[in-house]
């Protein structure tokens, strides 16, 4: 009996491994054109003028397209990426075998429906520090750190980008062409953020509104496929 059960189990495992395929996405924050990693001092830094201490954001609603045709959409597709947990920057999509695709689409942030539908667990659990408490709504993108030019207390800048109500919905959809079907690296350029956002003038965004919406428009240019 045990022998048969063992065989059934092995068959299952073989079947499962034959049926599922994998597609890996590695997100890589870059600063001054180089991939940066979270170091022991708990910061991302390059030349010392700007140090990033917190970088946390949601990637959601991941879809793969072949030409114009949608060929894969991930179920319960909500991923919290946090530089304090480098492994969160690698996503593993369980795609069907032999799937061909030419582009990927995803959102940066959490959709409006989820924002008004109560409590969720996992990456959406409010214990992750990505849910506002004084008013409802997820923070889509959190960036905090210290900049020499920042006139705020202790030179700290704080950008909490979120909101789900029109006209200030900062959820942005990113679409990127891809050439491989096994693994891609997506660069997130911190430089592009600080080229546009001047930390000397704009250093606190902590509520939904015009400023958060304007900031979120940067997302469409900071993501690119690493060559």
């Amino acid at each position: 009996m045990r022998y048969i059960a063992c065989h059934v189990f092995l068959l299952c495992v073989t079947y499962l491994s034959a049926q599922s395929s994998e597609f890996f996405i590695n997100f890589q924050p870059t600063f001054e054109g180089e991939v940066v990693v979270y170091n022991e001092e708990n910061r991302l830094e390059k030349d010392g003028d700007i140090q990033i201490e917190t970088l946390k954001f949601y990637i959601s609603n991941i879809e793969l397209f072949n030409g114009d045709q949608l060929v894969f959409s991930e179920k319960d597709s909500y991923h919290l990426l946090d530089i304090e947990s480098p492994e969160s920057f690698s996503l593993d999509l369980n795609t069907p075998p032999k799937l061909s695709f030419t582009s990927i689409k995803f959102d940066v942030g959490v959709d409006s429906l989820t924002n008004v539908s109560g409590a969720f667990g996992g990456d959406l659990d409010p214990t992750n520090g990505m849910y506002w408490t004084w008013q409802s709504g997820y923070i889509n993108f959190k960036l905090e750190g210290v900049a020499t030019d920042c006139p705020a207390r202790h030179n700290r800048f704080v950008y909490h980008i979120g909101g789900y109500e029109a006209p200030h919905r900062p959820l942005q959809t990113i679409e990127l062409g891809i050439e491989t079907d096994t693994e891609i690296a997506i660069e997130i350029s911190m430089d592009k953020i600080f080229e546009t956002i001047n930390v000397a003038e704009q250093y606190h965004i902590m509520r939904p509104g015009e400023e958060a919406l304007a900031f979120s428009k940067l997302f469409t240019s900071i993501f690119s496929i690493s060559k």
């Binding site: 924002n115 109560g118 409590a119 409010p126 408490t133 004084w134 008013q135 409802s136 709504g137």
Partner: peptide, 16 residues
């Protein structure tokens, strides 16, 4: 009306 869902309401007094 800061809170849009009863599930999320308790977060406000807990965190304030």
């Amino acid at each position: 009306g800061a809170i849009n869902h009863l599930d999320m309401q308790s977060l406000a007094p807990i965190s304030h």
